[in-house]
């Protein structure tokens, strides 16, 4: 029986660009503790990096006064990371209109690198949920590829 609370880790940061690396490092530590292979940890790091950059740029109407919350849940099957911003405006998650800007490949990378990506918008903010399944077999395949 897995104790879910023991595998729950949370980080709150101010919406400042300098905190991008702080969040990435936090998630890398979690993924390591969770037991993922090094290549998979890199994928998770990039996917989270994209989500957190989106949250800071598009989900922080007050700029650096806003916060972004990161919640990681790890069990025997997968690692789920939820990134929640404080964007209060109804807005489309940026995909097509920014195809040639810095953000154009962010969504593509999240989808390509994670097993499941969901985006929930509410009146209080947007939550991006990223899930990576823990599959020792496929990780072995990645390693030898």
């Amino acid at each position: 029986m897995v104790d879910e609370h023991a595998n729950l880790r949370e980080l709150n940061v101010q919406s400042q660009g300098v905190n991008l690396a702080k969040v990435r490092n936090f998630v890398v530590d979690v993924a390591k503790d969770c037991g993922f292979d090094e290549n998979v940890i890199y994928d998770i790091k990039v996917a989270v990096g994209e989500a957190i950059a989106n949250a800071m740029e598009h989900g922080s109407p007050l700029g650096e006064a806003n916060h972004v919350k990161v919640v990681c849940r790890c069990d025997g099957d997968n690692l789920n990371i939820q990134i929640t911003d404080e964007g209060v405006f109804k807005r489309a998650f940026p995909v097509a209109e920014e195809a040639v800007s810095y953000r154009g490949h962010g969504i593509l990378l999240m989808l390509a690198l994670m097993d499941k990506v969901t985006i929930d918008e509410s009146a209080h903010g947007t939550t991006v949920s990223l899930t990576k399944n823990f599959r020792p077999d496929s990780q072995e395949a990645t390693k030898t590829a």
Binding site: R24, K45, V46, G49, E50, A53, V100, S101, Y102, R103, G104, H105, G106, L108, L109
Partner: peptide, 16 residues
């Protein structure tokens, strides 16, 4: 040791 779509966007811009 790390590059995300921020860096990728810059490379595509340069290419264009």
């Amino acid at each position: 040791n790390y590059l995300d779509s921020g860096g990728i966007g810059v490379l595509f811009n340069a290419m264009q």
